[in-house]
Amino acid sequence: MMSTSPHPEASHHVPFYLPGADGSDPIMVGAGIFLTVAVLAFGLLFLRLHTLPERMAHRGHKLQFEIVAVLGLLALFTHMHIFWVAGLLLALIDLPDFTGPMRRIAGSSERLAGLPPGGGDVTSDLPPVHERQTGNRARHLVDERLDA
């Protein structure tokens, strides 16, 4: 039978860093807790830094944000840092809005042609302009162009 009492010649004061007679090891428990917290903190810092371009581009245009997000995913899955750098640079650049002026030009052209708003959209499922029932002026303009 084993005795858990210390040897009579052993010191009665045992330092805290030595395992106890019951097998507990406070240094190993502390190191395990520290390692777990350190790994979680490093992972959160890495993911926060990795999503920096997406968070910066979120305030911009939707297309710019989507391109930056795709570059971020490519950087994450391919481990090629150039995609992350490209996404960061794209997020830093303020792209001009080309769609707003183009929509205004299209709307003005439709008004000049006498079409209803969105009537000149060629990507819609509507029939061509000369087959649609539009205003008299639009039919007149279409007929003039067909006769020419």
Rank of each mutant, 00 (worst) to 15 (best):
M1Y: 06
S5A: 15
P6A: 12
P6F: 00
P8N: 00
E9K: 14
A10E: 13
S11R: 10
S11F: 05
H12D: 14
H13C: 10
V14H: 03
P15H: 08
F16Q: 07
L18H: 01
L18P: 06
D22S: 00
G23Y: 06
I27T: 09
M28N: 13
T36L: 14
V37S: 09
A38Q: 04
A38Y: 02
V39Y: 11
L40Q: 10
A41L: 15
F42D: 09
F42Q: 04
L44D: 01
L44M: 08
L47W: 12
T51W: 11
P53G: 00
P53T: 06
R55F: 08
A57S: 04
H61L: 10
H61P: 03
F65V: 02
F65P: 03
E66M: 15
I67E: 04
I67R: 01
V68F: 04
V70F: 01
V70T: 07
L71K: 03
L73C: 02
M80T: 09
H81N: 13
I82H: 08
F83V: 05
F83W: 01
W84M: 01
W84E: 08
W84N: 03
L89M: 13
L92T: 09
L92R: 05
D94V: 14
D94E: 15
P96Q: 02
T99N: 10
T99M: 08
T99V: 14
M102C: 02
M102V: 14
R104K: 11
I105C: 04
A106T: 10
G107R: 10
S109W: 12
S109Q: 12
A113W: 05
A113P: 07
G114P: 04
G114M: 04
P117K: 07
G118I: 09
G119T: 02
G119V: 02
D121N: 15
D121A: 12
S124R: 02
D125M: 10
P127L: 02
P127K: 07
V129R: 08
V129F: 03
H130L: 10
H130K: 13
Q133G: 09
G135A: 15
N136F: 13
R137V: 12
L141G: 06
L141K: 06
E144I: 13
R145Y: 08
R145Q: 14
A148I: 13
A148E: 11
